[in-house]
Nucleic acid binder design. Structure first.
Lengths: 352, 352
DNA sequence: CTACCTTGTGGAAGCCCTTCCAATAATAAA
DNA sequence: TTTATTATTGGAAGGGCTTCCACAAGGTAG
């Protein structure tokens, strides 16, 4: 049996007699033979592996996207190398590691601003990259219409008759946060309502760019200082923040949606549990699509960058007050204020 | 410049003159040269890569462990190949893929029972494997004292004076669930209390082995049928279940901890938010240790299997009633019953 | 029975490193 | 200055595949 023949058998090439094929397979089984992955990779000049660079997924949004990615990647028989980013410095490092010649066949880059230095020198590199939940004109990207989404969310509150509407947004340095804020403003303007700057609380929390429960809690604390002028409805830039914000409201004895109506963004799994009205992002789907796009890009490396944008969908639950619900039930416990025991890791991370 | 010299420079071998080193480096930079990862792997016969096989991390427990793993792996300059398992069938497939010759240098296997077929043929394979949150005598493992932990949790409730104590447990097919149940029983016996079988609700949910909010919700619904004999205190086998269970209680107008005291298990991030008294597992740390153990195992492949067991720690918050809290506040919303909109993925998965 | 296609098979070359050994250069000792 | 050491350097061999080319074998048509 020639060495080439064996290769042909294992790779399902057509020109092999059934007899030889079986003979090869038999011997292979007896010897417990398996092709050496790296040797194949070296010879074929590809790895069948993608890297995913993700700001660490303590944030539920990423978990769901990552799940989509991972399932899709497995289904096509590829492997996924995971780079969790906890600190902005790690971005460069991860990109560099992933770009090492022969390491992976492509990179999925999530939710973080692609460093300009990389954006430039990337075009030389033949390595495809797909951006998810972030944008760069030079590369394929899959994003959500944050502007439109925020507008829709806000308009929902307007349509419920609210006149005094506020917003709590995550750290403005993050694209999604700032764009959602713009959408909020646009909605009010569109309906000839004045934008009261005091009604806008911008989180200055740096951890997770303010997309966290703690940040939401603190922001609402801040907003509560408005006292009687407290908005009757608030758009909050993410579900996790909304959960924190609700805790702050509870502490003051304020009820959602009766005293304050809330619409948030993301529709993470918990949103359902908390009865949050929110803008649903097809997270799982976005993960899958990212992989699909990666494959397409590999087939046609020179095509123009593709930009997919999803329209988030309004999911009406209870927190906005549109759906009336059964009698209120007493809550059982206070939210213990942030940092009570878990050590607050103050790494800043520019992310979603 | 000889080819060997270049290699020496890139690998930091000592015997290279400063002059040559710099010359090589200069040329390398000019040519934008990088060693080819797979070629290195082939020549060195190692990949600097570990695989992690994890039941999919919609479950917060895994996220936290995975984070520990990922950080540690990056810190030693290795790569992590992630295999998320959604269906039991995928376990074999993942193990097989990871075991392919030259694919990875080691496998971290999480929370699932290692298939016997693999356990056997593994010893031939030179590939190290470390088990986390699961056990097999033949391999290194890092687990938590589920028995002791459950016992401690139960004793805490006993010490608070409860006489009628119940337990809600996840699917008994899962090791942690069944062991925690045993610990519960042992605690009662130790204190000469009778074990009332009606007070034990065993979840028959298969998805995530019943370690889910829905399962907890349903189990509590079931338990509520006890009516006036409802236990005054309940030990629940995980935090997520406890959260679901609390929702069910709320629906009935019952308050935690006043009407029912609760202690659960895991101490996921959300536990704090919900004020759950729970048994803390050092999840992040377990992830790191798994990697450490992997490295040790590689240094000394023939050492006897190491079994590390952590003692979970009781974290007292509000749900057990030991800490009295400020006046109750009305809750704002019902828990919308399971499966209201998210399509219930009914894959069964034998996991934690 | 030839001449000409197919189809299948063996193996060299190439993928890109690391590692080892031999050769050379530099240095120290005599 | 010569010899014995030691520090560098070059490059062949080897790691395990894929791919391509040449050749053999089997078929078909003339």
């Amino acid at each position: 049996m020639g060495i080439g023949t064996v290769s042909r058998v294992f790779n399902g090439h057509p020109n092999v007699t059934k007899a030889t094929r079986e003979k090869v397979l038999a011997v292979a089984k007896r010897l417990n033979y398996q092709p050496h992955v790296y040797a194949q990779g070296l010879a074929r000049q590809r790895t069948n592996t993608f890297a995913a660079i993700i700001p660490f997924f303590t944030n539920y949004f990423f978990i769901e996207v990552l799940q989509g990615v991972q399932e899709k990647i497995s289904s096509i028989g590829f492997d996924l190398i995971l780079h969790g980013i906890n600190h902005p410095d790690e971005i460069d490092e991860s990109l560099r590691r992933s770009s090492r010649r022969g390491r992976v066949d492509g990179i999925l880059f999530f939710s973080m601003r692609l460093p300009d230095t990389f954006a430039k020198k990337w075009k030389d590199l033949e390595l495809p990259i797909v951006l998810v939940d972030t944008f760069h004109e030079a590369f394929d990207s899959i994003t959500v219409e944050n502007f439109q989404g925020a507008q829709t969310a806000t308009e929902h509150l307007i349509s419920l008759g609210h006149k005094n509407i506020g917003m709590i947004t995550a750290n403005i340095k993050s694209d999604p946060a700032s764009i959602r804020l713009e959408g909020f403003r646009a909605a009010l303007k569109k309906h000839n309502m004045e934008v009261n700057e005091k009604n806008i609380i911008v989180s200055d929390v740096t951890k997770l760019d303010g997309f966290s429960r703690d940040a939401g809690y603190l922001a609402m604390k801040e907003m509560l200082k408005l006292g009687p002028q407290l908005p009757s409805a608030i758009f909050i830039s993410s579900d996790v923040q909304a959960i924190g914000a609700i805790s702050a409201l509870r502490e003051k004895g304020l009820r959602v949606p009766d005293d304050v109506a809330i619409v948030s963004f993301d529709d993470i799994e918990l949103a359902q549990h908390f009865g949050l009205t929110t803008m649903r992002q097809p997270m799982h789907r976005m993960g899958e699509l990212a992989v699909d796009q990666m494959l397409k890009r590999k087939e046609n490396p020179s095509a123009l960058p593709v930009q997919m944008r999803f329209m988030p969908e309004l999911v009406v639950r209870q927190s906005c007050g549109a759906k009336k619900i059964s009698p209120h039930i007493e809550d059982y416990v206070h939210y213990t204020a942030p940092q009570d025991e878990r050590t607050g890791n103050e790494n800043t991370l520019s992310t979603r």
